[in-house]
Structure formats: structure tokens, C-alpha cells
């Protein structure tokens, strides 16, 4: 019989088993944690109560069969939709205004065959602003902005736009950097200006990918409205937090249904528009 060797794979398997055993030993003995405490009758009771609440068992007039609740939830859904569209709109517009100077191949002149002295300065400034805006999470932006403005969907949209501006800017600048330079250069040498090159060579080539990024970020924004809603940015998120605090579980079910509807809308829109671009 062959003697088992202690090669890399065997070693890492043994090491990970040891680490798992060690971790559990530490949790149970060192931290004195008990697994059975998690699965007590009490916790089960709470969970059952919560889920029964969600499905409206034993509740008189649950929200999801109530006409007024629906109409108010739908208007909140509309608010959320508005907030998400505003947010992606702001982010997209600012991205488009800044993405060209933020592209390395434009800054060093290799794409447009023209180089200005201030190219690298604007490149650096915009890239730093991208990093800054996406390094700060939406929630923090929302807290800061709602601190300044009064709560509502506009501050929420601005907060979401600020975070997504950096993400879109970085992604879209990279798309241009990865472009085939030959068509753009050829236009440059047939006398096209920087902006004409942008419209004729860059935009048509990057559009499908931009659309994918923008629609994807839109979908993410839609879901993130719930997070900024928690700190008072309006829409479904704010209502969600309130219903949670008042133990109106059937309201929560209703709001979750609304969210699912929103994501379906986003899916449908992105599918259709991607077909259109192709």
C-alpha cells in the first residue's frame, strides 16, 4: 500500500478540519455558548408568532386584503419608484458629464490623438471624487443629507445618486479604457473633434454595456431605497420601519409584495431596453 503523502492538498484539508474543530471548541467551551439556548420553546414561539403575523393568521382585517392599505402602499411604491428613477437619473447624468476626462486613454491622448496640459489634473480630480463618493455607503450619505435637508424622497434620491455616481463613473470609464482604439483614432485622423469622436465612435460602442450597468444599478437602488428609508428618506422603506416598530406584521407582508412588484418592473424594463439596443 502506498504511504499517504503530506502534499499541499492533504495538508490544507487537515488544517481546515483542525480549524473547524478548534473554532467550535472555542465557541462552546471558551465562550460558554449553548446551542440549545437558540432553539428554546420561547424562540420558537416568537418565530411562530412573527410568521403567523406576516400571513395574517388570526388577524382581523389584514392589511393585504384591505383596500385603503393597498392604495397607500401603492402610492408609497410609486414614491419609491420615483426616488429610484431620480437617483439613477442624477447618477447617470453626472457620470456622463465626467466620464470622458476620467478615462485614462483620453487623459493620455491615446484615444483622441490630442493632449492637453490639464488632462491629468481633471483625470485625477474626477477619479478621486469617484472613489470618495462610492467609498461612503448610501446609508451614511442619506443620514448626512437628511440631517441637512428635511426628510423626503428628494434627499433620499440624492443620497443614492451620490453613492452610485462613483460606481457608475468607475465602471463606465473602464469600459471606454477597454475599447478598441482604432475606430476612434481613425476618426481623429480624419479631422473629427474630441466631442465628435465621443458621439460617433465611443458612444455607439459603449452603449450596450452602459445600459447594462445603469439598469443593474437602478435595480440595486430600488432595493436600497428600503435602507435609506429607515433613516427617513421616504418611500416604502420608511413605512417598513414604522410598521416593524408598531408590530403591524400584515403591513410588512404588503410592503414586501410591493418590493417584489418593483423588482419585476425593473427586470421587465431592462430586458426590453437591452433588446432595443441590440
Amino acid at each position: 500500500m502506498r504511504k499517504p503523502k503530506l502534499d499541499f492538498i492533504n495538508f490544507s484539508v487537515i488544517l481546515s478540519l483542525l480549524i473547524i474543530a478548534g473554532s467550535w471548541f472555542y465557541i462552546i467551551v471558551g465562550q460558554n455558548a449553548s446551542l440549545t439556548a437558540l432553539f428554546t420553546g420561547k424562540n420558537l414561539e416568537y418565530a411562530a408568532k412573527f410568521f403567523k403575523g406576516l400571513f395574517g393568521v388570526g388577524v382581523e382585517d389584514p392589511a393585504f386584503t384591505n383596500r385603503d392599505s393597498w392604495s397607500s402602499a401603492l402610492s408609497l411604491t410609486l414614491d419609491t419608484l420615483q426616488m429610484s428613477i431620480m437617483a439613477i437619473g442624477f447618477a447617470t447624468v453626472t457620470m456622463f458629464l465626467t466620464v470622458i476626462p476620467a478615462t485614462r486613454t483620453v487623459a493620455n491622448g491615446s484615444l483622441t490623438l490630442s493632449k492637453k496640459r490639464y488632462s491629468w489634473i481633471s483625470y485625477g480630480l474626477i477619479r478621486v471624487s469617484y472613489v470618495f463618493s462610492r467609498a461612503i455607503p448610501e446609508l451614511v450619505w442619506a443620514m448626512v443629507i437628511i440631517f441637512i435637508f428635511k426628510p423626503g424622497i428628494l434627499p433620499g434620491a440624492i443620497a443614492l445618486a451620490l453613492h452610485n455616481f462613483g460606481i457608475l463613473g468607475k465602471l463606465c470609464a473602464e469600459v471606454i479604457e477597454d475599447l478598441d482604439k482604432r475606430p476612434a483614432r481613425n476618426l481623429a485622423s480624419s479631422g473629427a473633434s474630441k466631442w465628435q469622436i465621443l458621439m460617433y465612435a465611443v458612444l455607439p460602442a459603449v452603449m450596450p454595456q452602459y445600459l447594462t450597468y445603469i439598469l443593474y444599478r437602478w435595480e440595486v437602488i430600488m432595493r436600497t431605497t428600503i435602507v435609506v428609508g429607515f433613516v427617513g428618506a421616504g418611500g416604502l422603506g420608511q413605512q417598513f420601519k414604522m410598521s416593524m416598530s408598531f408590530f403591524h406584521y400584515t403591513d410588512i407582508t404588503l410592503l414586501l409584495i410591493c418590493y417584489i412588484v418593483l423588482v419585476f418592473i425593473a427586470d421587465y424594463v431592462s430586458e426590453k431596453s437591452r433588446n432595443f439596443v441590440k
Binding site: P183, N186, L187, S189, S190, P204, A205, M207
Partner: peptide
């Protein structure tokens, strides 16, 4: 004065 033609990869394919 001067116009250039290279290999066919110089056209914008999407347009």
C-alpha cells in the same frame, strides 16, 4: 490634405 485607410477594424461596427 491627407486621408487614411487601414485594415477594416477602423470602422465603428455598431453604427
Amino acid at each position: 490634405k491627407i486621408g487614411i485607410i487601414r485594415q477594416q477594424f477602423d470602422l465603428v461596427g455598431q453604427l
